[in-house]
């Protein structure tokens, strides 16, 4: 499966700004935000700020890196629903 990432800054109202738009077949499916120092032990992890369609999940985990996030998103797109 082909996911395309596009760096972007998201106005989260916090220090969490560095972000990636995640596209699948031309459609935006997720927004990932890198957690800043304000999150202590979770700094550097990626947070599912928004997921669309099958990627929408209030209880998504935090991801250690972008690869882990993409594997999780691909699984949702393939298996969910």
């Amino acid at each position: 499966m082909n996911l395309r990432l596009q760096p972007v800054q998201v106005a989260t109202g916090s220090e969490d700004q560095e972000s990636q738009l995640v596209f699948h077949e031309g459609f935006l499916v997720a927004v990932l935000v890198r957690l800043s120092e304000q999150h202590d032990d979770d700094v550097g992890k990626w947070f599912l700020e928004a997921g669309f369609g099958r990627v929408d999940d209030l209880n998504a985990p935090l991801f250690a890196d972008l690869d882990a996030a993409q594997i999780w998103i691909e699984k949702r797109l393939t298996h969910a629903g």
Binding site: G13, S14, Q38, H39, D42
Partner: peptide, 14 residues
């Protein structure tokens, strides 16, 4: 509050 821990952290900071 039906939020994630990340959101709560941001709200408290704000």
């Amino acid at each position: 509050t039906g939020l994630t821990s990340v959101h709560v952290n941001r709200m408290l900071r704000g």
